[in-house]
Nucleic acid binder design. Structure first.
Lengths: 259, 259
DNA sequence: CGATGTATTGAACTCGATCAAACAGTGTGG
DNA sequence: CCACACTGTTTGATCGAGTTCAATACATCG
């Protein structure tokens, strides 16, 4: 199902939207909670609806015209950029409350593709011209700007990770990033399920799947994490941070036991 | 010299600013050329001055409060993010007309450091609150937004390069990027001087200096470029593009001659 | 001139990729 | 309920692109 198709679906009534937001379990993370009542009222007039997408389905594709903006309501998605050669680069994973689809806002064409990692739902907001909206609702604009810049610094950090860090540090970065974002959502950062495959993690970090798998088991042998398939339990935040910060890549990590 | 020191220096008169812009050789690349006369008049009221910095000097440092925005008038600079471990990652090289210092605009703290690659000059614009300015001058805002998003897609492309591409493709990307940006400025894309060191290029592309050097000579042996120290001449755009686009890294590139 | 920063070239090594195989869940349909 | 296919994960063995170490060359400048 393409974004175009989504945009034309049923438009829910304002009353329902109010309830949707009031009862939303992601409302604390959602930018709408930081809008004034007045702005929020205006904002809700442009709500299209609430849509569910299944694992593997794409919300929009790089090159699509931007007709709307999404806020992730539940589930998780990945966003990636595509290259000529056919290989993609995952640029981020997103969780409830995250704003989806602002890259490429300027000339109204998506620069990335967004795909669901599990059954997920989004709030869709139809815009005709983002720039006009910005002028009409300064606070909304500020929130979008805030998110845009947060995304940007996230990408800069990823550049550092991809350009300079060893496989261990990359994995440490990934785990710390995920945990901190889950914590910010009031979830446990020490006991959670990964919704993305090893392949996704590998792609995101510029590694091979096998390397990801190997390092996860290494971290497990070193008692830094306990991992079983998609579930991570009892994660040692402190030690992971040490790995992430250490420029030396001299890490036994329990592999001497194997020898 | 820090940004703080710069900000307190002599403020030139409006008339001078007018001339500065009118006579500026980078004016076609500068966002001011895309502002309405009215906006431009307002914008010039907040011009601080025109400052020159030498090679190695920094315009601002990651963590500095943002007191002003810069537009590169002449020369070239690099911007980089710093990590705990002490290793930096260069996130971009900038040429005349480029807007410098908008990352971190939101909470008024620079997220990156900008350093001159050669003697360069910038136009400095003092702001107290960017968000207010945005509301007052919609067109100015649009231009900044435009640049911000351009930066963002540039960073996304770099993510792809760092995450997925071989050393050859990285170098090809770098050369093509530089040439296209020089061409956009009316300069020759086939005959130019690199203002950054091999070390800078290596850092930017996540490679070792030696690898950069080796691949440049390989490209030379394959008659794709002619390189002598910092000067690049007779660059074969077509062949570079082929290297950049090819997912296979099977490239003789003249190294069989050596064997 | 020597001194310093920058660039090239060679040789050896290593980290992570690639190849290959086995294993574990998860349906799906007979 | 089991056989089968299918996808995702782990583990082992080997290989190679790019790093690291080391030596040399080259340019610029006091």
């Amino acid at each position: 199902m393409t974004a175009t198709m989504l945009a034309k679906k049923n438009i829910i009534k304002l009353q329902e939207v109010d309830n949707t937001c009031r009862l939303c379990h992601a409302k604390d993370q959602c930018m709408t909670s930081r809008l004034s009542d007045d702005d929020l009222r205006h904002f809700k007039h442009i709500v299209c609806h609430h849509e569910t997408i299944g694992r593997g389905e794409r919300l929009f594709i790089s090159g699509d015209n931007i007709q709307s903006l999404f806020i992730l309501h539940s589930g998780s998605v990945k966003s990636y950029v595509e290259s000529f050669g056919g290989d993609n680069q995952i640029t981020g994973f997103h969780f409830p409350g995250d704003i989806i689809g602002i890259h490429g806002i300027e000339n109204n064409v998506h620069t990335d593709t967004v795909e669901a990692l599990e059954t997920s739902s989004v709030c869709e907001f139809g815009f005709t011209n983002f720039m006009d909206i910005f002028q009409a609702f300064p606070n909304l604009h500020k929130q979008l700007m805030h998110y845009l810049l947060k995304e940007m610094s996230h990408e800069q950090e990823l550049l550092l990770v991809l350009g300079k860090m060893s496989a261990q540090r990359r994995i440490a970065h990934f785990l710390l990033d995920i945990t901190s974002r889950l914590k910010a959502r009031g979830l446990s950062g020490e006991r959670f399920n990964l919704t993305m495959t090893r392949h996704d993690i590998a792609n995101y970090l510029g590694l091979a799947v096998e390397t990801v798998s190997r390092i996860l088991t290494r971290l497990q042998n070193a008692n830094i994490i306990a991992v079983e398939r998609r579930s991570i339990t009892s994660l040692n935040h402190q030690k992971l941070k040490e790995i992430y910060d250490s420029s030396e890549s001299i890490f036994g990590l329990g592999q001497e036991h194997i020898k």
